[in-house]
Amino acid sequence: MEQSTGLLQQANPNKQLWEKGDFTQIAATMRESGEALVARLGITEGLEVLDLGCGDGTTAIPAAEAGAQVLGVDIASNLVKAGNLRVKNKGLTNCFFQEGDASNLYELRDASFDRVVSIFGAMFAPKPMDVAKEMVRVTRKGGKIVMGNWIPGDPTLVAQILKISSAYTPPPPEGFISPMLWGVESHVTERFGNAGIPKENISFSRETFNFSGDFSPSALVERFKTYYGPTMNAFESAGKNGNAAALQEELELLFNSQNQSGSATKTFIPATFLLVTVTV
């Protein structure tokens, strides 16, 4: 498995967004769901796994703990550093993180991986047609691609955070393609079809990721406000327009209304996503 320094060939406009905050603070509330998902993916010793848009390893590290050889690739240098630190602290020698762009994996050889996993990662990369082609290119024949993608208009947490945040930010630039379209089955089928995958090799299911912690939903709002790039941008824009209090109120209502912990001092919020499985 190639383990280069991972320097980007060209700038990705998402790099600044995901390096802006500290997604590790959000990922810490998602660990149990990451472990549970990996346990269902049939990842075993000897498999070579690429985790694309890996963050600091919510799914990459459980895959390595299952015995796979894992390469994590992320656009954000701070998350790559955090992931490699987690690997070191856990004493794992079969997992490595490097910087890279999901729409141009120029450093990775064709047919290098048995599994390509991207849970709420590659969906945010620009050039989705290129992202699909690259995932297919680096997957071995008979291997699988597994994506977890948030669903547009879904009433659960993350789709609503992104919907609320977008209402407080300036409109995107011309030509912008919403990452939420990765949560629409017809778009996923088209993108992988364009990469040579027949539709019968693509399956979908709706699954749940949970955000949990021994703190209040309002404290989780603060984490998103302080550390999650899209929410940070929304608060910056809202502040300039005198709307920060309204944004805060909307998010507080959302998080508290969806908390299923049964306690005002604990958080357990499920969020629905589209699980995509592609056989190459």
Rank of each mutant, 00 (worst) to 15 (best):
G262V: 02
K225M: 10
S237V: 05
E48F: 09
L274V: 03
D56P: 15
G55V: 00
V116Y: 11
K163W: 03
S103G: 14
R206T: 15
A68I: 03
I177V: 15
D51V: 09
E35F: 08
S212H: 08
E19C: 10
P155V: 14
K266L: 05
F176R: 09
P152A: 13
N149A: 13
C54P: 00
Y106M: 11
K20F: 14
P172L: 09
G175K: 03
E250N: 12
Q10F: 12
W18N: 01
A122N: 04
A234D: 02
G121W: 00
I161W: 11
L41K: 02
R86W: 06
G262I: 01
W18P: 01
I145N: 01
Q3W: 13
V80R: 01
C95W: 06
G83A: 10
G83Q: 02
G239Y: 08
S186R: 14
W182K: 03
A11G: 05
Y168M: 13
K133L: 13
G6F: 03
L37N: 00
G153T: 01
V80G: 03
K240H: 14
N201I: 01
S112G: 09
N104G: 02
S237A: 14
F176G: 06
V158K: 06
D51Q: 06
I151F: 14
I61S: 04
L105K: 01
V87P: 08
A76M: 10
A68T: 06
F211T: 09
G262S: 10
T139S: 08
G262Y: 03
N233K: 13
C95I: 05
A167E: 15
G91K: 15
T93G: 04
F97T: 00
I202F: 05
S205L: 10
V158R: 10
F124L: 06
S33T: 08
L52R: 14
L52D: 13
P13E: 09
G34F: 07
S203N: 05
T5H: 15
N89F: 11
S186G: 12
A28D: 12
